[in-house]
Write a protein that binds this DNA or RNA. Sequence first.
DNA 1: TGATTGAATGATAGCGCTCCCATTTGGGGT
DNA 2: ACCCCAAATGGGAGCGCTATCATTCAATCA
Lengths: 343, 343
Amino acid sequence: MKTGRGSGRPTVADVAAQAGVSPITVSRTLRTPDKVSPELREQVMAAVAALGYAPDPNARALASARSDVIGVIIPSLTNSVFSDVLTGMYDALADAPYQIHFANNHFSPFEEERLIAGFIRQKPAALIVAGFDQTERGRALLRQAACPVVQIMETGDDPIDMVVGFSQRAAGAAVTQHLIEAGYRRIGFLGARMDPRTLRRLDGFRAALTEAGLYDAGRCVTTPAPSTFSLGRMLLRDLLTRRPDTDAVFCNNDDIAMGALFECQQAAIPVPQHMGIAGFNDLELMEASYPSVTSVRTFRYRMGYLAIEMALKELAGMPPTQRIVDVGFELKVRDTTNRYLTG
Amino acid sequence: MKTGRGSGRPTVADVAAQAGVSPITVSRTLRTPDKVSPELREQVMAAVAALGYAPDPNARALASARSDVIGVIIPSLTNSVFSDVLTGMYDALADAPYQIHFANNHFSPFEEERLIAGFIRQKPAALIVAGFDQTERGRALLRQAACPVVQIMETGDDPIDMVVGFSQRAAGAAVTQHLIEAGYRRIGFLGARMDPRTLRRLDGFRAALTEAGLYDAGRCVTTPAPSTFSLGRMLLRDLLTRRPDTDAVFCNNDDIAMGALFECQQAAIPVPQHMGIAGFNDLELMEASYPSVTSVRTFRYRMGYLAIEMALKELAGMPPTQRIVDVGFELKVRDTTNRYLTG
DNA sequence: TGATTGAATGATAGCGCTCCCATTTGGGGT
DNA sequence: ACCCCAAATGGGAGCGCTATCATTCAATCA
C-alpha cells in the first residue's frame, strides 16, 4: 500500500478498501450522501471514522476544478472598518464547507487586479471585492469568473454580479444636512486617504452644502495619507488656520473626528457650541466618548454577513432573492453636534 | 488539445509544446531556474509569456505534497491588535511565493485545535499561532507538522518550534511599577476578556503590587466579556463603587483605559491628579488623546513581520539565527499618570 | 411477460503538476 | 586515451480525488 511518495495519511482508496466499496462511493458519501444508499453510507462513515480520514482539499480542487476557497479582497487590514466586515463574513460562513481567504490591495486597483487574477487561478467558490473601482481588466476577470461575485461597501445599478452596500454619497449628504439643520453655517470637511468611497461622501457633502448655498471649497481639507487620530488633530488645525471662523466639520471617518475633538479640547474650543463635529462609521468609541460624537452608523458586520450569505445561496443553487442589496445607514446624533446641550 | 474536462487555461504541457521542451523542464524553469540552461530558460519564459500561462496552485500542491499556504491562527479579528500583526505579516511576505491564510479561533483552544487540523490537511508551508495555550492535541499536531511553526505574542523557553513575542508578565509588572513610582498607592486593575495573555499581565500586576505591599484583590475588576470602550467606563464605575478611594488603574488594554478616562471626564474626576490611568498596547489613539494616555507599547507589526521572516528563512533552508525572539515592550508615560502635570 | 425506467454502484480515465530515475553530454583527472 | 563525475534534460508514473459513462438490479408500466 505504501507507494513511496504518499503522504502517509489515509486516502479515499484506503477508506474504500476498509468499507468494501469503490473509491467513488466514498467520494459520493462525503459530498452527496443522498445519492448513496443508507447501508453503504453507514459503512463508509464507519471506515472514515476508523481511519481518521480527511479529504485532501488540493486533490479535490484539482479533480473537480473548483476549490472551497471564497476569496475576499479588501483595501486594508489596519482599518477597523474592514475587520467588522470580515467578522460578519466568518460568522455567515459558520459550518459551510468553504473557507475564506483574504488579501488586501492597499487601496490600489492595480494590486487588486493582481489579486483577482491570483484568486481566479485557484478556481474559487466565490469572490468578494470592495466597491466598484476595479481596473478594466479586473472587472473583465471578475465577469468571466465562473463563480458568484459580490461587491460590498457601496451600491450601484450595474454590479458585476451581486452587490451589498449603501450609498456613500447619500450618507455624506445626510450628515451635512444634519449639520445645517443644527444651525451650523460655516461647515468644513476633513478627509484622509481619499479612497473612492470617501470621495463619494465628499460629493454628498458638497451637494448638500451647495444646495443650501453654503459651500466653500476652501473649507475642504484633505490628504492622501492614511487616516489616524493625530491626523485628525492636524487637519483641524490646518482648517482653522485657513478659515478660523469654521463652526463645524464633517470628518471622512471617526478617527479624524475623534482627533478633531481632542484638538478642540486642548485648544479649549467649546464643542458643540463653537464647533460641531461629525464622524463616519460609528465606531464603538464614538458613543463611549465624552462628549459623545455624532457619526453615521454603517452596517459593516451586516454587509459582510450578507455578502457571504448571498454567495452561499447561489452556490447552493438557489437563485438570490435580489442581486442588489442596500443595507442603508443611520445618522447617530450625539453631543458633538447638539448645540442646545446643557453643559 | 481539448480533452473535455480541462479548464481551458494553458498547462505545462502546452507551454512545453510551444517551447519545444518537456513538461518537467517548464516546471523546473518556473521553480528552480538555475537548474535550467539559460537558452532553454529563455525559450520557456517566452512560451509562458506567449500563452499567458500561470501554474495551478492546486495541482502543484497535490503533486509536491506541499502547498504555498502559510496558515495563521489568531484569536480574533475584531481586535485591532491582531490587525497590526497581520499587516506586519503581509509586509514581510512581500513577493515571496507564499500566501497567508488565516483563521480566528474566537479565543477558544478547542476551535484552535480544529483549525490546526484543518490547516495541516492542506499541507501548509508554515504555521503561525498565537501564544502557548493550545490544547494537548493541538500542540501534538503542531509538533508533528512537517513545516516551520512560529508562536507569537508571548515568549517562553519551550516553543514548539520558534517563537517571537514578549513577556506579558514583565510588561504588566513594569506599568504597575511605574504607577507606584508615580506616587499612586491604591491601584486597581480593570480587565476584559481575560485571555491567557491578559492573565499574565494581571500576574505581573499582582507581583509588583505584592512586592510593594500594596496589593488588594478587591481592586481587581474583570469580566470575560470582550473589551470595548463602554466596558471600560463600566468597569471603572464598578471599581469606584467597591473601592471609592482607588487612585489609579492599570487597564488590561487601551480600549478599557480610554473608557475609564471618559468616565473620569464625565464624573469630573481629575486625571491624573485623583486618578492615574494606564492602558496596554499603545494604540495610536493613546498618544493623540487629550489628555494623552499612558500605555505599554507592544511591537505588534514587528512580531508579525518577524514571524513570517523566520518562517521564510527556514523554508529557504537557512537555519534561523535564533528560535526564541523577544521583541520586548516599551512603557510610554503620558499625561494620565503624570501627577506633576501643569494643567 | 417483456420492455423501460431510474436509482445505486463501479470502472476508467484523467485533473495539472512534480517526483524519481534514467539518459545524455561535456569536461576534468590521471 | 581512459574513466568518472556533474550538469542538463527527459520519460514515466503517480499525487488523491472526481467526472463521465457503463453497468447492475429492482421497480414500473403497457
